[in-house]
Simulated assay, not measured.
Amino acid sequence: MTPRDVPDANSPDDGRAGNGSRWSDLERPPLNAGALRRALVREGGLWTGVDVVQRTGSTNSDLVALAAAGKAAEGAVLVAEEQTSGRGRLDRRWSAPPRSGLFFSVLLEPVGVPVARWGWLPLLTGVAVATGLSKAAGVDTALKWPNDLLVTVAGAERKAGGILAERAGDGAVVVGVGINVTLREDELPVPQAGSLALAGAVGTDRDPLLRGVLRSLEQWYGKWRGAGGDPALSGLQETYAAGCSTLGRTVRAELPGDRSLTGEAVAVDGDGRLVLATADGVQEPVGAGDIVHLRPV
């Protein structure tokens, strides 16, 4: 994959993505695409290419299209300095100021893993992002099932990121990640949102943060794929449960058709579903695809 394949791409000779106004906010310098490639792309490694574009609608949409056209292979990483049509689960929309976060997608082809276990990829990515940020930013990141990244700001949990996985043909998945890095209070889309900076990150330089997250994702994906996608054998299920703030809380799962289910979140099962213990003494698993909203009670 090359930058010329992506809408609004811009890759000057110095390896940095941007245009004439890329230094307009000196607190938010552009990513160094060349340095990222040198640090991440290596023989025998997962990442086969890293491209940074100045502005695009959605890195997920772009990478799905490139995969469909045969212009991207496993290990392709597409990063945007700004997304104008960023998408979350259930096609929810969100946006952030240019260069204020990490907005990227990766193409994975989990050969040897049964399709029934591909539902673990968003949860795996959550674990990888949380562990990567813990090391690179010094921020304790919790996971809200199924796809939210939480940080603590002024004693309260706030959403600082999200994950979206989409099929890209029969044998591939595109996983998109959005992380608020330097958003200030007056830039937050909603009061419940947060950022690494607001959570007291020891560093907000996006280059080392992205390297740390992608290296962590490479490690966890390798473990999971090496175990044939078995979440228990790879250690993924246990690690996810340890970092999931949803477990142990009473929540209400809002389901399609104005239905809801209330209970204590007691486990994440082998299929990645959240298990709720209801007042009737029944344990009900709910899948991410069945949830409209998951709210604390």
Rank of each mutant, 00 (worst) to 15 (best):
G257S: 04
S260A: 15
L209I: 05
R92G: 00
R259S: 13
L66K: 04
L36I: 05
L183P: 11
R225S: 07
D230R: 02
D8S: 15
P110W: 10
S24K: 06
V174E: 01
W47I: 12
R16T: 14
L261S: 01
G171V: 04
R55A: 10
V292K: 02
Q237R: 14
P122H: 02
R249I: 05
E264K: 14
A154Q: 12
V202K: 13
N180W: 11
N180L: 03
L255C: 09
R93V: 14
G15V: 09
T59S: 02
E43R: 15
T182P: 01
A73S: 12
L133C: 10
V151N: 00
T204V: 15
K223C: 13
S245N: 11
E254C: 10
D290E: 15
V202L: 09
F104A: 04
G228P: 02
G138A: 01
V113N: 00
G226C: 03
E43H: 12
D148C: 05
D170T: 10
D148P: 06
D5T: 13
G155L: 04
T84Q: 08
A68Y: 10
V6Y: 09
Q192Y: 08
G281H: 11
G86T: 03
V111M: 10
T250Q: 14
A80V: 11
R259K: 14
R184K: 14
I163Q: 00
G289L: 07
S85H: 11
T278H: 13
D62I: 08
N10E: 13
R99Q: 09
L214P: 03
V127Q: 00
S95L: 06
R89P: 03
N60C: 01
A165T: 13
L107I: 02
Y240R: 01
A199R: 05
P98C: 02
S195V: 08
G15Q: 06
L90Q: 03
A156M: 12
M1Y: 14
P12H: 09
R4E: 15
S100I: 07
L123G: 05
V79T: 07
I179P: 05
G243L: 14
L188P: 01
R16G: 09
T125V: 12
D51Q: 09
R252T: 15
G75T: 04
R37I: 05
Q54E: 15
G272D: 02
G228F: 08
P3G: 07
L236G: 00
Q192M: 00
T262K: 14
D207C: 02
K135F: 13
G257P: 10
L66A: 11
